[in-house]
Write a protein that binds this DNA or RNA. Structure first.
Lengths: 205, 205
DNA sequence: GTCTATACTAGGATAGAC
DNA sequence: GTCTATCCTAGTATAGAC
């Protein structure tokens, strides 16, 4: 008997996976650069180097393309959370997450979705791969937020959900790109400034 | 002689102005609701109650429609700045501006533009009515920021430009709509929470 | 599963009568 | 300056051969 057939992916299957990874990576970049509406399927196909019809053999619609990119970034977020040292202080963990998020955005790898676009939202809300990761990330962060409030390092005035949204919002903070466009600061400086604004506030301490 | 002809707008001219004001108001609302890309000219025409071709007699392109709405909101911002009591403390003035910006957004009256869309940016950067107001608003805020840093109430660690961008960014802060969608808080509570986050930071004080 | 060629639609813009 | 009717491009999606 030959169980290897089912255990080891065939060469063709590996090629398929690699091709799809290349597609999703391209979509991720284009979503970061131009957003969902401005990204065209023609552009994706051209950038990947295959015909548009071939693209549609892999993903049934433009929305599904974007959803795949969102799954990917959410998986990266989950992986990052798992890499944060467990015995760091809760507030430091939250800082690390905000920093990572902003670094990804500045690197041009953070896909940004329009806040409306009902069709895309519908696709995402029906995508279990996405939702599962979103929930996992939210749960982990929620735990850290509560721990940080419990040890007194994080403001207890704010509901945890508001803190969570504030952290998520760093993924699309326009201040980053504005400062970058100004050309007066390095990426690292920009990250530190916005991080300081986020955790320490604008008022003097 | 009859100088009134040139001094007092004729009835027709008043109607024209009123019609255009209605158009810009509609565009402003649609831009706030759906953004530039998702807003269609058909929709604007239908909402105003005139034919699409008539719309194009008033404004030569979709970009110019959006630009008119941006001029309008920037004028409102300028008017608000002028209404802030001159002898309030600088930091309080900045708080008031952030609060106003968020209230306008929650009221669904803050037109939000895609951060890219080169064609729209080009139109705006060629629109003196817009640029003049933008500069005026930035100058006023810049003065308040420097004053607040000078009197020690605003963090002096941050460059003034970073503070300015942070205030502008309140106009499109997704945290507001997320919290509103949650339905757990009133608009006033949401504004106070995000205001606190912005000025006091997430960390405990 | 990849290609070329094409169908179909939405949406920005214009023509031309009144 | 308003209308109806139309043009035309861009862009999503599919047919059908290999």
């Amino acid at each position: 008997m030959n169980t290897a057939v089912s255990l080891k992916p065939s060469f063709k299957q590996q090629m398929l996976v690699a091709r799809e990874e290349a597609i999703v990576q391209t979509v991720n970049r284009l979503l970061a650069e131009k957003g969902f509406e401005a990204m065209t399927v023609d552009e994706v196909a051209a950038s990947v180097g295959i015909a548009k019809a071939s693209l549609y053999k892999h993903f049934p619609s433009k929305e599904d393309l974007a959803a795949a990119a969102m799954v990917r970034i959410m998986q990266r977020a989950k992986d990052f959370l798992a890499s944060v040292p467990a015995n760091d202080k809760p507030l430091d963990k939250l800082r690390a997450v905000a920093r990572w998020t902003m670094e990804v955005q500045l690197a041009g790898e953070m896909p940004s979705l329009p806040h409306q676009s009902s069709t895309l939202r519908a696709t995402l809300m029906n995508n279990r791969d996405y939702l599962d990761r979103l929930v996992a990330v939210s749960d982990t962060l929620g735990g850290w937020i509560e721990a940080a409030q419990a040890d007194g390092s994080l403001s207890a005035k704010l509901p945890a959900i508001a803190v969570l949204y504030t952290l998520f919002a760093r993924a699309c903070d326009p201040v980053l790109e504005f400062l970058k466009a100004g050309g007066q600061h390095t990426d690292a400086q920009i990250v530190e400034m916005v991080l300081s604004t986020c955790f320490d506030g604008l008022s003097a301490r």
